[in-house]
Design a protein around this nucleic acid. Sequence first.
DNA 1: TTGATAGGCAAGTGACTACTTGCCTATGGT
DNA 2: ACCATAGGCAAGTAGTCACTTGCCTATCAA
Lengths: 100, 100
Amino acid sequence: MADDLFKALADPTRRTILDELTEKSGQTLFEICSRLSMKHRLGISRQAVSQHLAVLEGAGLVETRREGRYKFHDLNTAPLRRIAERWPVPDPSGTEESTS
Amino acid sequence: MADDLFKALADPTRRTILDELTEKSGQTLFEICSRLSMKHRLGISRQAVSQHLAVLEGAGLVETRREGRYKFHDLNTAPLRRIAERWPVPDPSGTEESTS
DNA sequence: TTGATAGGCAAGTGACTACTTGCCTATGGT
DNA sequence: ACCATAGGCAAGTAGTCACTTGCCTATCAA
């Protein structure tokens, strides 16, 4: 459903996770955890990150593959295409402000 | 900020409102209310729609103009561009972009 | 085997949020 | 003046959500 996609994007921590996976795809849970606490100063438990990843996977934004005791997380931005399809975005005549 | 944008998109009723404004921009509050109940069978109060429109306006997705006792609501999809800018979306299934 | 690492499951809690209810202001028509 | 229309403000409520806590399973190395 479209609902899962937008609900997944609604949380700032999940968007940061997507940013991290954009920078380096195929990270494990612990790798994402340490990056969130190091780079983004996010004091967050492993379980919380795991739950966020489950939501992202439910939205189709993250795909996982298991190898031994490791589980790698890959980014999939394809579902985002439906947003631009649903509400057509005009050409960038004047670029807007930057992201946060 | 970016948070307002994604929070605004997180609600299905607000996304339906965006759909309605995509179809016909410049609607008043009552016009949107009646369309939601007619076309989409949404039993929702006027105040609820008003609050949704305030959230959408806070996200920059809706702009308003007053004329007398009427307040018209216009769609602005420009903020959506930042989503595709933040997480690049691949081209759909092998359609390479050759500038013909 | 033991121990350490990588991850999962489930219940509980606090905060947020969508919606309602009730009352108020402003504009336009008669 | 009157009254209906168009919209706004604020408090209360029920449901959802992010996060924690605690315990469990699976894989690998010694």
